[in-house]
């Protein structure tokens, strides 16, 4: 038991003894709070009649009434927008070991490298879940407050809301695991960060959008990591914005995310982790 608990404890200590985790948590909170607050106020205003739909772009205004219940959509921002943060933290945790040459003391203390990578995956899964809670504190905390202000039911007594919150935490935890995998796959820290930002902010949204044009590509597109994540969480802007697009079941989405994480970590182990440390 000690054989895995010790390296896990060491991995937690590594994350908690540098500033990165709380900087990312802080930015995540601020970003999601702003977004959730702003959009819930906007939609809440339209929904409650405080803002006339006519004052908005006709396209957006018309769609709003068909969106169904707003709160889950806003709450899901924690993952559907915030997922880039656990990926970054996971990627920094692995690439940092290469960059600062801390693989040497790490492998001296734990010569079984598979255990070290396993321990890192477990630790990042937990820290990713914590980031999920931080994101939810922002999206649910601020969102529910605003909805209350507009007299809209924030659905906090609804079991389905709490299930969504649970699935969001899981999604964020899995994203951190994907980050670890990416970090071993691309050990260069700069390259890893560029890939995370380019893929999550630009490439994948484009791919997901493009994939909705035909049925065949839509069937492939639903397996993109972001799409799988939204499927797991169960509500997102993206899925609503492309109603025709096929969507995975939540549990399928979870498995797809997990598969991405484990595949990347497995290949990364072979490509970089097992290599000579010189």
């Amino acid at each position: 038991m000690n054989l895995i608990l010790r390296p896990v404890a060491a991995e937690f200590a590594k994350i908690l003894s540098t500033r990165m985790w709380w900087i990312l948590a802080l930015v995540l909170f601020g970003y999601i709070a702003l977004l959730a607050g702003g959009l819930s106020a906007l939609f809440g205003g339209v929904e409650s009649g405080a803002i006339s739909p006519d004052s908005m772009n006709s396209g957006g205004g018309a769609g709003l009434s068909t969106l169904g219940s707003l709160p889950p959509l806003i709450y899901s921002f924690a993952a559907s927008v915030g997922y880039v943060f656990p990926v970054l933290l996971g990627a920094l945790a692995t690439t940092g070991e290469f960059r600062h040459q801390t693989l040497t003391p790490t492998f001296l203390a734990t010569p079984r490298r598979d255990r070290v990578l396993g321990a890192k995956t477990i630790a990042l899964f937990v820290v990713g879940a914590v980031l999920g809670l931080v994101g939810l504190a922002a999206s649910v905390g601020v969102g529910a407050l605003v909805f209350n202000g507009f007299g809209i039911d924030p659905l906090l007594a609804d079991g389905e809301t709490w299930a969504l919150i649970g699935r969001t935490v899981l999604a964020m935890a899995l994203w951190a695991v994907i980050g670890v995998g990416l970090g071993v796959l691309v050990p260069s820290q700069v390259a890893s960060i560029v890939i995370v930002l380019a893929f999550t902010q630009f490439i994948e949204p484009l791919l997901r959008f493009a994939s909705t044009f035909t049925e065949v590509t839509a069937d492939i597109g639903k397996f993109l990591p972001g799409a799988a994540s939204d499927a797991l969480v169960g509500a997102s802007f993206f899925t609503l914005a492309s109603p025709g697009g096929s969507v995975l079941e939540p549990w399928q989405g979870g498995l797809v995310l997990l598969a991405y994480g484990l595949l990347a970590t497995g290949f990364g182990y072979l490509i970089s982790w097992k290599r000579d440390v010189t």
Partner: peptide
């Protein structure tokens, strides 16, 4: 401290 944890 990290490595005292790893090595018990």
């Amino acid at each position: 401290g990290v490595y005292t944890l790893a090595a018990g």
